[in-house]
């Protein structure tokens, strides 16, 4: 597994159909394509976490996680204030589709890290959609973000091994062509069912 340089990234852009890497639209290729990264911009839609009357996110509750968030949007170039310790789900402006042999690592650009916004997230091979950004301001001051600013960078790695097809299937069935930030789908996690059936509901004293 090695990190892709800009030359390799460009090669992937030119491949055909399923093997092709897609990052669209890249508004300013000269500044967005770095030596080993692609800078991605902040998209217009936001999901802001809410304090609610039943404030517990519990996988065993039927309440959808979506209800813990309020939706809003800003136009391109418009300001969005990120308050300290507030969780906001945003997304990249760009739509990304990885071929089955690439794996992505998404991290905040260092200039934003130093202001107190840092996120790291992985992008599975075969993923198609905008990339959800879990924004959290760890400084003590609100930070003004502007839609369209380059906020994160995507590093790409080649995947080694032979079972990548299965990996893609699982990944795509979970994340399908999203065009806006996606809240957690942790409630679809099968582990909770196993835990409930095998342990929680049959506690052995």
């Amino acid at each position: 597994m090695g990190i892709l340089t800009s030359d390799k990234i460009k090669e992937y852009f030119l491949k055909s159909s399923d093997d092709k890497l897609i990052v669209t639209p890249i508004l300013d290729p000269d500044t967005q394509l770095g030596l080993t990264t692609i800078d991605l911009r902040l998209g217009p839609k936001f999901k802001v976490d809410l304090r609610t009357r039943e404030p517990v996110i519990d996988l065993n509750d039927e309440r959808p996680i979506e209800t813990f968030f309020d939706h809003t949007y800003r136009n391109f170039g418009e300001r969005f204030l990120l308050y300290p310790n507030q969780l906001v789900l945003a997304s990249t402006f760009e739509y990304v589709k990885l071929p089955k042999d690439l794996f992505g690592l998404l991290i905040t650009r260092s200039s934003w890290n130093r202001l107190g916004i840092n996120l790291t997230s992985i992008v599975q091979p075969g993923y198609a959609g905008v990339l959800t950004l879990e924004l959290m301001n760890k400084s003590s001051n609100p930070i003004a973000l502007y839609v369209g600013l380059r906020l994160v960078q995507l590093c790409l790695f080649t995947v080694e091994g032979t079972n990548s097809d299965q990996y893609i299937t699982q990944s795509i069935s979970k994340y399908v062509a999203h065009s806006e930030p996606k809240t957690s789908n942790i409630s679809e996690d099968k582990d909770i069912e196993i835990l409930n059936n095998k342990f929680r509901n049959t506690i052995r004293h």
């Binding site: 399908v176 062509a177 065009s179």
Partner: peptide, 24 residues
Amino acid sequence: YNFLENLNSLIRYALYASQVHKRW
């Protein structure tokens, strides 16, 4: 239903992105 939702999602995204792209 899902087929149409997926298509809608792709077109919706494209409409927005293309207009930003054009202005850029």
